[in-house]
Design a protein around this nucleic acid. Structure first.
Length: 222
DNA sequence: GACTGATCATAA
DNA sequence: TTATGATCAGTC
């Protein structure tokens, strides 16, 4: 699949795959459906990326940089409520003094997101899960303010060397949680005296209450 | 049953 | 190791 040249083309493609089962889309792309997601946690996301023409690979950018759009699949239950939080980006634990909200990686990634809801209940076989209608979203002023508040609070912990005090309970719509291979994963951080230390890599995640509102607002406005 | 810490695969 | 894509699963 080639890259979409406009926002409309991307949206059209996303609408075209809405209503398909994952197995149907996978077959059209000649991809095998794994038995479940236990060892293929990113499979749905990668499948949708390919279907929409995002160039695969791991670049620290949006999925469609020329369109300024980030692609996110989100697993939902029968009521359309998110089953999982949404990973956004790794948290910068060092060399972070001076970055403010407006220049943050997180804000850039969330400036425009194409959400693809996908049935995610484990009782439904992976291939039988349906792809939902796409939602092209930009944070409204309230949402942006909430994100900024949480981001600033969480970044304060990091900048002040309080990485060890961080836990998932901090933040109203955002949270910091481990993001690594396992608990032994290590990256550099700073302690309260400014010394470099080894620490668990952390990532920013959107809480379900936040993404649920995005999905709900879409339903109301359609 | 929800939540938080832990985990899985792959590329560069 | 960092970055991409995320979901798993034990504990409360």
């Amino acid at each position: 699949m080639t890259v979409p040249h406009s926002e409309q083309e991307l949206l059209d493609r996303a609408k075209a795959i809405a209503g398909l089962k994952l197995a149907e889309l996978a077959q059209s792309l000649k991809l095998n459906v794994p038995p479940d997601l236990k060892r293929d946690k990113g499979w749905v996301g990668t499948l949708i990326e390919r279907a929409l023409g995002a160039d695969a690979g791991s670049k620290p950018e949006q999925d469609f940089p020329h369109l300024g759009i980030e692609l996110k699949t989100i697993p939902i239950n029968g009521e359309g409520y998110p089953l999982e939080t949404t990973f956004v980006s790794l948290a910068p634990l060092i060399r972070n003094s001076g970055i403010d909200w407006r220049h943050s990686h997180l804000r850039a990634k969330l400036s425009k997101v194409l959400w693809i809801p996908v049935q995610g209940e484990r009782s439904i076989p992976l291939g039988e899960r349906y792809i939902g209608s796409p939602i092209l979203w930009q944070p409204d002023p309230l949402q942006e303010a909430q994100l900024q508040r949480d981001w600033e609070e969480l970044m304060d912990y990091i900048v002040l060397g309080k990485v060890g005090q961080i836990h998932a309970g901090i933040g109203e719509v955002l949270q910091l949680r481990p993001k690594g291979a396992n608990r032994r994963a290590r990256t550099k951080a700073v302690d309260e005296r400014g010394r470099i230390i080894d620490a668990l890599p952390l990532g920013f995640y959107l809480r379900k209450n936040f993404t649920a509102r995005i999905l709900q607002n879409f339903l109301q406005n359609r």
